[in-house]
Design a protein around this nucleic acid. Structure first.
Length: 761
DNA sequence: GAGCACTGC
């Protein structure tokens, strides 16, 4: 007798024991004799070579056998027995596999053979930080398993669920998607094994999932977890997931490690003798040095942003053309390609173009130089790169909880990041990496790992998600790296002002609905309350427009024309209304395929807005939030601005002095309207979508509001008794007095609104 | 009179 609880679900032929199976079972049943989670490598290899596909019961295709050959050559394949043994014996495993080990495609399949999720109606999930990765890996694995994508093997990403309920048992998904699922099923009961891939990237979603899963495995003894990482920071994961039976008084023992070598070519590293004062100049010089002196092979140069990249491309091209003209017989032609995310996809494709041919037969071959942001470090791989130039910087997000601002800062990269960059030179053959800093600085100045996102972000959204997940004590939640207490306080404070959390920190009914929207809390709040102003249809559009990248295009050689086109669509009352106007015009001109381009707007971004809007609309319908509109344009615009105030009352600035400078309410930051702002005047009170810290502090996407609304819709935040002293408070006091006068029966004569006095800075 | 590292729901 077998007492394994899973076996009851299996057809008799798969139970492996008992009198009822026929002797030909293994002929028809490739998984004959497989005991869930007790499967051996030998059995799996046999099943893989079986003429029948164990999951479809159809004969394997010729393509399957060809792919299987290639799989056998992967480093991880030769360690199948070791993996299956560790998997059988442990609930949590930490796995380290360098690039090229095959872990992302193979491990989930090994797990499937051992876990047999299809026999118990469960799934194996494998998370990825990026959508494209989830999609492309799922396709590859479907091919390897000889099944149709979306059937046994599928993927799930925002806007696209490529799975079939009851059929799919291996699902690749984005980490954010699994987090969303956890909000509605805290036990993640659909899954028998969860694999967190690329855990070393430490995305916010993966970090929160690790905390959740660490807790969940205590309750769900049948759930297995595999944390997969590319770098050697595994010790940290191992001790975080250490098994600790406090009741038995045992010492915690680290989670077991399963390690697989990578398969890349060696990369020789060069450092500079002295620190380089100007890294862009040094980078250009190095690229040209490689071009003149090194063997054929393409170059990848890492810089920090669009402007720097475009500038460097121009200079490299100029110098390289010069070299070619002076000495065409000893140096080949050079092609320089920029790469950053806001580049249209068509131009991004240029990185895959072949290097130019020799200028003349018998002359040196051409060379391709890709000048890229960090996008080439993780998201995009370019084959044929032999030389990497690494100045050692990237733009990184930093969050300052004191002034509640996220900004981008050019900062030194980490050792792990430098290693990843160097690895890009060894994908096809041995390569070289030129680091534009000294070896001493590499050893002593660079941090081991990039700070995880959870330490660099505004956590308002994450805290709302955690509250929805039922985490009561957010400060003592078991984070792999705990965020600064002040960051958590800021998030709790914001959610309390928005009435998503009550004064005890408990999630309110409103907060529960807010968490259902894939939006920042302010946006969610404004969308949910918008039916009260009868403008939810418009707020829905504005919310979608605020959730996508900038729609305005401004080609360097057509700036005047672009500005003119923008002026045509601008609504002077505020940038939010302009966004609404842009979207509505786009919708009305769908028949004209060139409309977006003719108006200097990004068709890609507008299509994204449409997608987001449709998704938000579905969530609104699910929670019976009316989608309504006002006929009268004046009333409608007024309602929109009032609804905006309900979400963004903490993002208000008051004009101080005549020079167009504003002070943010409460924080008293001196800010200016961003030059992209379309207001035709400088109203006394404005609401803004974001505070950006670039050359100066700016507020961007701005709309005029009335101070009465602030007092009415956010009385707690604008409680004058506790308001910081200053001109803003005095201005609010005047409004409050006036309102009191009116509500007292209008006996007092309304005082004229004073203009703010000039103030010296 | 300026900008957009990169993701994700």
């Amino acid at each position: 007798m077998v007492d394994n609880p899973y076996l009851a679900h299996l057809p008799p032929s798969q139970r492996g024991a008992g009198p009822s199976y026929s002797s030909s079972s293994s002929e028809k049943e490739p998984l004959f004799g497989f005991l869930p989670r007790k499967v051996k490598g030998e059995q799996v290899r046999k099943a893989m070579e079986h003429h029948l596909n164990p999951f479809t019961k159809l004969p394997h295709s010729a393509q399957y056998r060809k792919i299987l050959e290639a799989r056998r050559a992967l480093p991880v394949y030769s360690q199948m027995d070791e993996f299956l043994e560790i998997f059988s014996k442990n609930q949590i495993i930490v796995m380290v596999g360098e690039t090229g080990s095959g872990k992302t495609t193979q491990i989930p399949q090994f797990v499937t053979y051992s876990d047999l999720p299809h026999t118990k109606g469960k799934l194996v999930a494998c998370t990825q930080p990026r959508r494209v990765a989830a999609m492309s890996v799922a396709q590859r694995v479907a091919d390897e398993m000889d099944v149709q994508l979306g059937k046994q093997v599928g993927y799930s990403i925002r806007f696209e669920d490529m799975t079939e309920a009851g059929t799919t048992f291996l699902k690749y998904m984005t980490d954010g998607m699994l987090l969303r699922e956890a909000m509605n099923d805290k036990e993640l009961s659909r899954y028998s094994t969860i694999i967190l891939d690329e855990a070393h990237e430490r995305t916010l979603a993966t970090d929160i999932l690790m905390g959740l899963l660490k807790n969940l495995v205590k309750r769900r003894k049948d759930l297995k977890i595999i944390v997969m990482s590319a770098t050697l920071d595994a010790v940290k994961f191992q001790s975080y997931f250490s098994l600790h039976d406090s009741a038995a008084g045992e010492e915690p023992s680290p989670a077991p490690l399963f390690k697989v070598p990578g398969r890349t070519h060696p990369v020789e590293i060069f450092y500079t003798q002295e620190p380089e004062p100007d890294y862009v100049e040094a980078a250009i010089r190095t690229v040209l040095m490689i071009h003149r002196a090194e063997d054929p092979g393409d170059i990848l140069l890492f810089l920090t942003g669009e402007e720097e990249i475009e500038d460097a491309c121009r200079k490299i091209k100029l110098e390289a053309d010069d070299l070619l003209n002076t000495d065409p017989s000893s140096v080949g032609p050079l092609m320089c390609v920029p790469l950053y995310s806001s580049l249209p996809p068509q131009q991004q494709q240029r990185i895959f173009d072949a290097a130019p041919k020799p200028s003349q037969e018998g002359y040196p071959p051409g060379r391709k130089v890709v000048v890229s942001t960090n996008i080439a470090e993780t998201s995009l791989t370019i084959d044929g790169i032999v030389y990497v130039v690494d100045p050692g910087f990237s733009k990184q997000k930093v969050y300052n909880p004191r002034i509640r601002v996220e900004s981008l800062l050019v900062s030194p990269i980490s050792k792990a990041s430098a290693q990843q960059r160097a690895g890009r030179a060894g994908r096809t053959r041995p390569g070289k990496c030129f680091r534009l800093y000294t070896e001493k600085d590499f050893i002593s100045e660079l941090e081991e790992q990039t700070h995880p996102e959870i330490l660099r972000s505004n956590l308002a959204n994450a805290v709302l998600e955690l509250a929805k997940l039922g985490i009561k004590d957010l400060v003592r939640f078991d984070y792999l790296d705990a965020p600064a207490p002040e960051t958590l306080m800021r998030a709790l404070e914001l959610l309390n002002y928005l009435a998503a959390l009550d004064d005890e920190g408990e999630l309110t009914a409103l907060g529960g609905v807010m968490a259902e929207f894939p939006l920042d809390p302010q946006l969610a709040k404004m969308l949910i309350v918008s039916p009260e102003f009868k403008v939810s249809n418009e707020i829905l559009t504005i919310t979608a427009m605020l959730s996508i990248p900038n729609v305005w295009l401004r080609p360097p050689n057509q700036r005047a024309a672009a500005d003119q086109a923008k002026a045509m669509l601008t609504v002077p009352e505020g940038d939010h209304l302009t966004m609404l106007n842009v979207f509505n015009n786009y919708s009305q001109n769908k028949h004209d395929r060139n409309w977006a381009w003719n108006n200097f707007l990004s068709a890609r971004a507008l299509a994204q807005a449409e997608n987001v809007r449709a998704q938000l609309l579905r969530t609104m319908e699910k929670y019976d939030i009316d989608v309504i509109s006002l006929e009268d344009e004046k009333k409608r615009n007024l309602g929109i601005r009032q609804a905006l105030t309900c979400g963004f009352f903490m993002h208000v600035a008051h004009k101080e002095g005549e020079k167009g400078s504003y002070l943010t309410v409460k924080d008293n930051q001196v800010v200016a309207l961003h030059p992209s702002c379309g207001l035709d005047s400088q109203p006394e009170w404005v609401l803004f979508n974001e505070f950006v810290l670039t050359k100066r502090p700016y507020i961007r996407t701005v709309t005029e509001v009335k101070p009465e609304w602030l007092l009415e819709y956010a009385p707690v935040y604008f409680d004058l008794a506790s308001f910081p002293e200053g001109e803003t408070k005095r201005a609010l006091q005047r409004v409050a007095n006036k309102r009191r006068g009116i509500s007292n029966g209008g006996g007092e004569e309304t005082r004229p609104r004073k203009k703010p006095k000039k103030e010296k800075n």
